[in-house]
């Protein structure tokens, strides 16, 4: 199929960017979206032009590195799908596709479609863990956990840290990401001792990093490739309130 791509090009964080148009005459349906970019880049390089920079690594939807805003949607048109898992069979011959980086002030652009998401790491560093040194653990089966709780914790823990929730939110809020971690640990008995301190610290850093407020629009849940639920935000809000009262 023939595909026209309008891609955001930006040399680095200091220069302004603009859209460039590229036409690919022969895209196979079996190609992944990123493989189409490989083909385009191959062509650009052979012409001595700068290839399009984009983040990717696992190419199977789990590392959270890929991050393209495709036709106005984070990770493209399919729900529950990362950019790298998107295949060209979901597009039509003759389509024009607009591709941009994640846009959020907490995620500055590095080059073309690459952004800096290290703010997420700093939020986790503030408290997204259980403080247990290596070698201090009790036997794993001495902490029975109801399957239902374990499964819910797992669902929250499935977040891949891609940042689509931030990119898609009109306020660039990181609530879905942060609440997923808060919620995972709050659902488990091991997470109880630090439960309230954790949420406070993480929210504090989240605010410092310049993420916006949550106004309950719910766009994040729709675009999250891992189906992280808004329930986690509700749970985090409750915990956050309690943590202030406990204070």
């Amino acid at each position: 199929m023939k595909i026209t791509l309008k891609v955001w090009r930006q040399q680095n964080g200091k220069t302004p960017g603009n859209f460039n148009t590229y036409t690919l005459p022969d895209v196979s349906e079996d190609m992944s979206f990123l493989e189409m970019f490989d083909v385009l880049n191959d062509e650009l390089i052979r012409k001595g032009e700068d290839p399009i920079a984009f983040d990717h690594d696992c190419r199977e939807g789990i590392c959270g590195m890929c991050s393209m805003y495709i036709n106005g949607r984070a990770h493209g048109p399919l729900t529950g799908t990362t950019t790298c898992q998107l295949h060209m069979r979901h597009f039509n011959d003759g389509d024009t596709i607009v591709v941009e980086p994640w846009r959020a002030s907490a995620f500055p652009i590095i080059k073309d479609l690459m952004v800096d998401r290290s703010a997420f790491d700093r939020v986790i560093q503030a408290g997204g863990f259980i403080s247990v040194n290596t070698g201090n653990a009790v036997d794993a089966n001495s902490i029975p956990i109801p399957k239902e709780d374990a499964d819910k914790a797992f669902d929250a823990a499935a977040c891949i840290g891609c940042g689509a929730c931030v990119a898609t939110c009109k306020n660039a809020s990181a609530m879905l990401f942060v609440s997923a971690k808060v919620s995972q640990l709050a659902l488990l008995p091991q997470g109880q001792p630090e439960r309230h301190l954790r949420v406070k610290k993480m929210v504090e850093v989240m605010d410092e990093e310049g993420f916006g407020n949550c106004t309950n629009t719910g766009a994040c849940e729709v675009e999250c490739p891992k189906g992280i639920s808004l329930d986690h935000i509700a749970r985090m809000n409750r915990d956050y309130l309690v943590s202030n009262i406990v204070d």
Binding site: F129, I130, V132, T134, G135, N136, A137, V138, D139, A140, I143, I145, P146, K147, A150, D151, A153, F154, A157, Q184, L185, L188, Q190, G191
Partner: peptide, 14 residues
């Protein structure tokens, strides 16, 4: 396994 469970790794359970 003990260490990971203590960290909150949500292994499958019965």
């Amino acid at each position: 396994i003990d260490q990971c469970v203590a960290q909150g790794v949500p292994f499958a359970r019965e």
